[in-house]
């Protein structure tokens, strides 16, 4: 353990929960926008953030009648901050929805596999959106043309002929990562490249190799 680690520990504890949540939300938002596949739903974090947004909205509503210049100014600061928080959450949710719409069946299968995990892939609302949207699409295809097809060709998840109908995101896509904690030497699968990843480094690597460290918080996507 050297001085950097000691400093890191001290600084993490002295920061308030609110600031850490903002940092975490920003990090999740960046990660979700950059990562090629959908990341697990951060349910605790989102609950805290949404709760705080609701409280701030109530505060703003309570005090808008007040014409005192001092509170009025404070309100503008609060509202500006609120708008920024709302933007972060909105953009985060939309980024997830975009992925859900792009690879519905693949994500549904992965969500089912992660249902018993500590962190399921999707929030209940997202899962519901995904299933109803998929049902809508299927019935739309069926009524437009698929119902007149031979029965053997009506499936939506056919894998015969060497081509799977279920589309997958490109898990080998390159991402930018910053190293938050020393990882040590990393071998990139399928190549003979070995990387020495040290705290503070920035690398461009394929996502499939980095996935585990991003999940454990040793790396962050940028």
């Amino acid at each position: 353990m050297d001085i950097d680690d000691l400093l890191a520990e001290v600084s993490v504890d002295s920061i308030s929960q609110e600031t850490r949540d903002l940092q975490e939300l920003t990090r999740s938002w960046v990660a979700e926008r950059v990562a090629p596949e959908i990341l697990p739903w951060p349910s605790d974090l989102m609950e805290r953030v949404l709760d705080r947004i609701r409280r701030q909205i109530e505060l703003v509503e309570d005090q808008t009648g007040n014409m005192d210049p001092k509170t009025n100014f404070k309100l503008i600061v609060i509202q500006t901050e609120l708008e920024r928080f709302k933007f972060l959450v909105r953009s985060f949710l939309r980024a997830r929805l975009k992925k859900i719409d792009a690879h519905p069946l693949h994500i549904l299968a992965r969500h089912a596999a992660s249902a018993t995990d500590l962190l399921p892939l999707l929030s209940p609302a997202e899962h519901q959106y995904l299933t109803s949207h998929q049902a809508l699409l299927t019935s739309h295809y069926a009524s437009s043309f698929l119902s007149q097809f031979p029965a053997s060709l009506q499936r939506m998840d056919d894998t015969t002929g060497g081509i799977s109908m279920v589309d997958k995101p490109d898990e080998d896509a390159a991402v930018f990562v910053r190293v938050l904690r020393d990882v040590g030497e990393v071998a990139v699968e399928g190549t003979d490249k070995r990387l020495e990843m040290k705290r503070g480094d920035v690398w461009v690597v394929r996502w499939s190799t980095m996935r585990g460290w991003v999940a454990s918080g040793d790396l962050e996507l940028i």
Partner: peptide
Amino acid sequence: DLLAAYKGQWTDIDLTGSLEPP
């Protein structure tokens, strides 16, 4: 309808709002 239902769970956020940083 589906969109309205999903949006309804995020009334505070306004999901269809601008995606430009405010």
